[in-house]
Design a protein around this nucleic acid. Structure first.
Lengths: 339, 339
DNA sequence: ACTCTTTTCGCAAACGTTTGAAATAAGCTG
DNA sequence: CAGCTTATTTCAAACGTTTGCGAAAAGAGT
């Protein structure tokens, strides 16, 4: 179906010269007669000659492609990460192939295999939540394809990593709630098998500790989805009527909590102040606008891409680098009590 | 830096046989001695042999890559489209390269050129809002690379298209508002140089017409962002106090309007009912949850990928196909007045 | 007229794989 | 044992491009 692409051979045949001469003429090699050069270049332009990247890739053993594997691109955070990667990659003539794991270990393995055989030059990966076995990463490591982990890292693998200071972000958000008058804050926590779940919880606890606020047995609730928060919050509030602050592990959960609070006729932030984590655009869309911790997806993506490019271009095998980015607390109305 | 990938030649050398024998042994060719087959296959497995896709691509003159160009993946709609494409593409052994135009004509042209020279097998494209010149698409057409447009089409180019019935979706949403007691609805419309802007407006007008509702000079407002709605709505409501319904061209704008309405102490939906368009997840996150028109991004993506695959695999050059998908009205609380 | 240099070009190999055709060796038939 | 079949393997070309090296031709110097 596809029309025959013009090749160097075609040009060579027409001009009755050899392919090598055409190749050199096209790249202005000094060995070539100016007249020949002119002939070749003119014909190439006329025929819309485009070098065949596949052939070049085969020759140079590189594809100028970066494989990006993320759980789900519909999540704001991951799409900003991707945008950051794309920007830096494009600047260096690379393109990105995107594959989604949908948080499935199985799909992740499959994607890695598939992209490996596409001769990807490097990987940027955010692990799936369900990934507990790391053989597929080990495999990548053995083959020698450079790899950078973003946001969710894996201890078992020696690879570059870009993380965000989850502990500090959680600490800042919690501290902020306390400073705004909250005396009884609960944390809606993420899964405790993931580092981000642990770190954000620890940051929360540290902030309470530093302010000498006692921690109840209900202070930590494992709850990291909008719908779960919607159900859980009214239940908890009915049992602990004096809760006046909520720090959620992500924005969606925070907003679920916000809706729940409003549904039982409590006011946000005056009765209960709320902070999320991520700074996705729904935090801005929420009513009242949501205080949150900026997770800097775009910067993380850019950083990851730069690390990968450096690794790919370097000959020496320097040790793995881990970069931890700072978070910013974004204060909006959901946490500012009038008092 | 990259470790040597195991090739057929390596296996051949180790086993002291020829590459062709190895190749055939790996694909269970009947000509090969069972013992040889076994040796080869075992060694291949042991060495983690993976066929080099680039070499295959060169041989078969295809890259098994589909170029996807969308305005911005952070938008829920586009990320669902991409997911749909990815699913179908993967099923047929294809991968997708994603490039964003950021709604910029310039970036769009650049992306097309770059992906073309990567020997993409086909394109799936949603035009940028600012694209008014179509030479780059013409170019793709001439070269003979198949191309499918999604959501936003271009009349000047003969290519397959997947659209959504914007008119009907808008009609249904408006009709629904009317049936729920709205007597004075305004439409926050998209840019009128884009087909979706026009169609949704026309659907809105048709529904009003069919219900014999008169149309004021203020009934159509060009306004398609959250922030714009936030400013515009209080202003309009102060001038036209009897407005009791808003149909917005997209969910974000609808939610901006919703926040504005609430900010001047009117109730949604009782005072003013609201409907959006897209059915992004923010419509579910909104408070009250937003009635909207499901634009079926995932289905559109799947459909586009199928059309592209069909086109790529077909030898004959059948005329361009346009598929128009139906929309679904998703009724939620924002439009259900009590009475 | 001889060698030496310069200019310009082509040959051939390489990248990893597939595949039609040819080659080899062994076994079988009559 | 000549001729034939069958089983198994290798050769060589092909995909499009690059590149080291050699070759041819022309000019320069002695």
């Amino acid at each position: 179906m596809r029309g025959h692409q013009v090749t160097i051979k075609d040009i060579a045949k027409i001009l009755h010269i050899s392919p090598s001469t055409v190749s050199r003429a096209l790249k202005d090699h000094p060995d070539i007669n100016p007249q020949t050069k002119k002939n070749v270049q003119e014909l190439a332009k006329k025929l819309h000659y485009k070098p065949n990247q596949i052939a070049l890739n085969l020759l140079q053993k590189e594809s100028k492609l970066i494989g990006v594997i993320v759980p789900e691109i519909i999540h704001y955070f991951f799409s900003t990460v991707i945008s950051g990667i794309e920007k830096i990659a494009n600047e260096s003539g690379y393109h990105i192939i995107i594959a989604q794991s949908n948080e499935s270990y199985h799909k992740e393995v499959e994607n890695i295999q598939a992209l490996l055989s596409s001769n990807i030059d490097g990987f940027i990966i955010t692990m799936a939540k369900t990934t507990l076995n790391f053989d597929h990463f080990k495999n990548v490591e053995e083959i020698g394809v450079p790899m950078v982990f973003v946001d969710r890292a894996c201890d078992k693998i020696t690879a570059d990593k870009v993380l965000v200071d989850d502990f500090d972000g959680a600490y800042k958000a919690t501290k902020h709630l306390i400073e705004n008058g909250c005396k009884n804050i609960i944390h809606l926590a993420g899964p405790q098998n993931l580092d981000i779940g642990i770190q954000r919880k620890e940051g929360f606890l540290a902030a309470l500790n530093d302010s000498n606020i006692s921690i109840g047995d209900y202070s930590i609730q494992i709850c990291d989805t909008h719908d779960h928060a919607l159900k859980l919050i009214p239940e908890i509030l009915s049992r602990h009527n004096n809760i006046d602050g909520i720090f959620a592990v992500n924005d969606l959960t925070a907003i679920g909590a916000m809706k729940a609070v409003k549904s039982i006729n409590k006011k946000v932030p005056d009765d209960i102040a709320i902070s999320g984590f991520t700074n996705s655009y729904i935090s801005y869309i929420a009513d009242p606008e949501l205080t949150t911790v900026d997770q800097k997806g775009f910067e993380m993506g850019q950083h990851a891409a730069r690390m990968l490019l450096k690794r790919m271009q370097s000959d020496e095998n320097y040790g793995p680098v881990t970069t931890i980015l700072n978070t910013d607390l974004i204060v909006r109305k959901s946490s500012l009590k009038k008092k």
